[in-house]
């Protein structure tokens, strides 16, 4: 039986408590920090050499799907009733509402140092960052970017990505002019506010820890990416014959030779292929 991933705004009090409890227990056991490190290790941008598995690449979606599945399995080993909830940032847009409540992710960072001091992931409650880009050992957030406010992506922003009938296009990186993948990952042209779209823009809207290489430290990461993963399933339903691209690896004369994962190639670090996880309905469904 497939299990169900629910909208975080529809979790019962008990479901919230058990999700938070499993995440905190995984952290206590040391497992959570492995996920932080895995994400750091797989951030290879497109202006550098080497294979890109996780970002600025067609496998952005399957890589994070597997990353979430592995995290979810770690939680379910602690509490089999837990599944990953998703945060629909096109609907739950307030910095004080779901999921920024004391029984879920906790609230915004405080004004003086952006430290998260409320909820179950505050330092006082034992959520100490072991791996970070700075020497701060606590979670920080700056919801909405207080000094220069930006908004969350809208339903329309998401719709323009969902409308694209092609999964991804050459050159298969952050400069790909079309394709669902780059539009939802959110690398727009140029620099500055207008260039940050969808997935990238949400990282920026949350700010603080979520902006850096160690973004996984903030459990908001999982709720955000569960929604991005849901959007992939929505895109698949809308374009039923469309598949993951590229179907075959770029050839030796292509600038992307050896740098992207084709449909049937193993996706590090898992040895599964994008084709293996294009359809996950037997494992989980979204409600």
């Amino acid at each position: 039986m497939a299990y169900t991933r629910k909208n975080v705004s529809r979790l019962t009090t008990g479901e919230r408590r058990r999700f938070v409890g499993a995440v905190r227990e995984l952290k206590r056991r040391g497992g959570y920090d492995q996920f932080v490190l895995t994400h750091v290790d797989h951030f290879a941008p497109d202006g550098e050499s080497g294979l890109r598995a996780a970002h600025m690449t067609p496998s952005f979606l399957p890589w994070h799907r597997l990353f979430l599945l592995e995290f979810e399995e770690a939680l379910r080993r602690i509490d089999p009733a837990v599944t990953l909830p998703y945060w629909d940032w096109t609907r739950n847009r307030a910095a004080t509402g779901t999921p920024w409540t004391d029984d879920l992710l906790g609230g915004n960072g405080r004004r003086s140092d952006r430290q998260v001091t409320t909820g179950p992931f505050s330092r006082r409650e034992g959520w100490v960052l072991e791996v970070n880009v700075t020497d701060a050992d606590y979670l920080t957030r700056d919801l909405g970017r207080s000094h220069d406010p930006i908004s969350l992506p809208t339903e329309r922003d998401v719709a323009s990505a969902l409308e694209d009938p092609v999964y991804d296009t050459a050159p298969w990186d952050s400069t790909a002019p079309g394709g669902f993948r780059n539009k939802i990952e959110g690398w727009g042209r140029g620099t500055g506010t207008a260039s940050w779209r969808n997935h990238n823009r949400v990282h920026r809207w949350i700010g603080g820890t979520m902006l850096g290489a160690a973004s996984v430290n903030d459990p908001a990461f999982w709720l955000h990416h569960a929604f991005v993963d849901l959007l992939w399933t929505r895109w698949q339903r809308r374009h039923r014959t469309a598949r993951y691209l590229p179907a075959r690896p770029p050839g030796p004369r292509d600038g992307q030779y050896g740098r992207v994962v084709a449909r049937g190639e193993p996706l590090p670090p898992w040895d599964l292929t994008p084709a293996d996880v294009e359809n996950v309905a037997e494992v989980y469904v979204y409600a």
Partner: peptide, 27 residues
Amino acid sequence: RGALRVLLATAFAAVTAPVVAAAAPRP
């Protein structure tokens, strides 16, 4: 039927072995 789950479990077992081993109070 159910094979993807088996596949995932195998893949994760290989990757998460250090995580399981690290089931200690400190990372």
